[in-house]
């Protein structure tokens, strides 16, 4: 009887311990949200949440702050990176799942995973010391000589090509998010039932027609989820872009100009913030980033789950 009781006690203890551990996720999310909110209350009080969001001020001396410039940089660089990365990533996924001979599928998958495993600080360093000089010496002058002469496009290629700019940062970010999108898309493509593919081939469809009309529609929800996941990564990426952005608080349409993102602003200025209002404004930036990526990621997840349940 006594031993039975001991078992009950151990069992209950294990149950409670594991339950508390699982609650830690909720505690962390609420804790982060609450802490960032409390720390940024000073800035919210002075500027108002939406006033802060749409203000282009960033003047530590006069203690006037706003998120618009950093938000602009974040959105612009993420957008450019996604435009460059998504087609390449889906191309890679199609190659690995549909075209590659079997013996090559494993190594190709490993290579993509290695690309994902390289830490962002290494991407950042490589970007600063290797990619940026190439961009400023060869790529950007060439772009200016061609597109920079056209009437509308010249806006995007104005300025001196330094290599430390929006274009370089978005290329590095694009290389970073290719493997995420590619591996999720590949997994989704691999789930296509081969019977369906074979019946399309049986009707005389070419390989591309099978991919276009069978594989892609079948995988579109997972692929979309993967794209949003990569978007969330890109928005929150710090070190890969911190080296090559310069961190200038302004809105610029030239791809050869320096801007700042929310993450780069935090990385560069957080430990240097000397006034309470400055620090509080940085916390408000962090809160905006947190809310934005939380909604994006949780939304993508729920969307994928709901669509899966319908099918």
């Amino acid at each position: 009887m006594a031993s039975h009781n001991n078992k009950d006690i151990t069992g209950t203890a294990v149950y409670i311990m594991t339950a508390v551990a699982s609650l830690s996720i909720i505690a962390l999310i609420l804790g982060i949200f609450y802490t960032l909110f409390v720390q940024s209350s000073l800035a919210i009080g002075k500027f108002g949440f939406f006033g802060f969001l749409f203000s282009t001020d960033w003047d530590p001396v006069r203690e006037l702050f706003g998120a618009a410039t950093a938000l602009f940089g974040t959105i612009l660089i993420t957008f450019l990176a996604m435009v460059m990365a998504v087609p390449v990533a889906i191309g890679i996924a199609i190659f690995i799942s549909e075209l590659s001979p079997n013996f090559f599928k494993g190594p190709a998958g490993v290579a993509i995973e290695l690309l994902a495993a390289i830490p962002s600080i290494v991407y950042g360093m490589w970007g600063l010391f290797t990619l940026a000089p190439i961009m400023s010496d060869y790529v950007e002058p060439a772009l200016q000589a061609t597109f920079g002469r056209l009437p509308v496009l010249e806006i995007f290629f104005a300025g001196t090509p330094l290599g430390i700019d929006i274009l370089t940062a978005s290329i590095i970010l694009a290389i970073m998010i290719i493997p995420f999108t590619a591996s999720i898309s590949r997994d989704a493509f691999n789930l296509t039932p081969s019977v369906v593919k074979e019946s399309a081939y049986g009707l005389g469809a070419t390989k591309w027609e099978v991919i276009r009309n069978v594989v892609l529609p079948n995988a579109r929800i997972s692929v979309l989820g993967g794209i949003i996941l990569s978007l969330g990564r890109a928005v929150g990426e710090t070190m890969a872009v911190a080296f090559v952005l310069g961190g200038a608080h302004k809105i610029s349409w030239s791809l050869l100009d320096m801007v700042s993102t929310i993450t780069v602003t935090l990385a560069n200025e957080f430990t240097e913030a000397d006034t309470d209002m400055y620090l509080s404004s940085l916390y408000l930036l962090a809160l905006i980033l947190f809310i934005f990526s939380f909604i994006l990621l949780a939304g993508a997840r729920l969307f994928v789950m709901r669509s899966e349940r319908k099918v």
Binding site: L36, V235, E237, T238, L266, F270, L289, S293, F294
Partner: peptide, 21 residues
Amino acid sequence: VLSDTMVSVPSIVVGTFIYAI
């Protein structure tokens, strides 16, 4: 769902959170 979301929360935000506490 919350864990999946936390996995991809920007790591710099975690840094600011720990700084505060």
